[in-house]
Amino acid sequence: MIDEKEHGDVMEIDKELMTKIYDLRRRLHSIPEASMHEMQTKAVLMSFLRENTDLEIVDRGAWFYAVLKSSDDRIGDEERTPIAFRADMDAVCGQDGKPGHYCGHDGHSSILCGAAAWLSRASQNQIINRGVYFIFQPGEEIGAGARLCRDLIIEKNIGEIYGLHNIPGYPRNHVLTIDGTFACASTGLEIHMIGTASHAAYPEAGKNPGPALARLLLEIEELTEEYNRSRGFVRMTLIGMDIGNANYGVAASEGTLRMTVRAEREKVFAGYVDEIKQIAQNTADDGGFTLDIQEIERFPATENHAVNVDKLRKCAADQNIVVTELAEPMRWSEDFGYYLQETKGAFFGVGDGEDHAQLHTAGFEFPDEIIETAVKMFVGLALM
């Protein structure tokens, strides 16, 4: 239950509730599900909320949200528009194709359930004077889930939204903040060129895309260097290149160049990707190749709003939680950026510990010790 103290004091959380949250996290860890297939996970989360809160729960098929109605008539005022919090539900698929909670989404969903239960109890004492939405999102790992859920922001006139990620390599229970971009924009690019086959003895009779794709890779590297000099951080990582096959009597006639590209800012990223596509088209046209370009798992930049980052800092200070300012954005991507295109808000991290196993590795498991800190941050933001 909420312990109502003077502003600035640390709020104490009910130990029985914390035990339930820990148990929920371990239950979720045992049933990992791939992106857009989180039906058992979703059922467990909805059941927890029904048993431990009096919130309205709205099922939207692949995802759901819970809502705590305002106890204050001022809900229509600009300053008291609803607030939202988001957690992701999906697991990571390893090299064997099997899902596992190697990123901590089991912890994120448990944290959001904990905040919902805590605030539900607080509302019985009429502490809450604004609507609060708890969004349980699928498909974050593939950049698909937030696009499904973000219409709720406009539909419910949500004025601000927050999300978090646990992050290894930083002191445990430190809140990690940054002005501007928290996580970079990214997408996979698959550039496929088709020419014409020929006998290996007469390569001039065909069109082999190998040299064209090699030149294209070098041009993209030059473009990347130019962007970094003049427009801010971008990065291209070569994932692979496939040309022809193992038939030594036939010259290659098809080839695919695969890369991941990323950037700190969304506008820069959009221009960077467009220029890569244009260079690829020019290269294909010059060589007489058919071109096909596919984007794989595009993520927007997660660009925080300054006023909401300041709220994060104040919320942490009010509860004696240490804040660590990040020196630069995370290079990985997070689809929370789609929400920040619709309303104000901020994304933050909670440190897992300096020596904690890295995300997306088989040795990773979410540290339960950071759950209470994360719950307090969500609750504190809702009460501000």
Rank of each mutant, 00 (worst) to 15 (best):
I2N: 03
E254K: 14
A346H: 10
T181D: 04
E4G: 00
E79L: 04
D54F: 11
L217C: 10
R313A: 03
I135G: 00
D179E: 15
F269A: 02
A301N: 10
V58S: 03
N157W: 00
E190H: 08
I154D: 14
V92C: 03
R130W: 05
L238C: 10
I31N: 04
R235H: 12
E226Q: 14
M377Q: 09
G61M: 00
D368R: 01
P99V: 07
D274P: 00
A212I: 00
G255C: 12
I57E: 10
L340M: 07
Q358L: 06
P211S: 07
K267E: 15
G104A: 04
R130N: 02
I191S: 00
W63I: 15
D286C: 14
A270D: 13
V234C: 09
H105Y: 01
E16T: 14
D368P: 08
N52M: 03
F134T: 13
E56I: 05
L223Y: 01
E254C: 02
N125V: 04
R235F: 06
F347Q: 05
E372M: 03
N52T: 08
S35P: 07
E254A: 13
E160M: 09
A382S: 13
E204Y: 09
A280W: 05
I178L: 13
L148K: 12
Y272M: 01
E155F: 07
D274T: 10
I239R: 14
M241Q: 03
E295R: 11
A317G: 08
H108T: 05
L24D: 12
D90H: 06
I75P: 00
G100D: 12
A197Q: 09
V58M: 06
K344S: 14
D90R: 13
E354M: 10
I243D: 08
W118K: 11
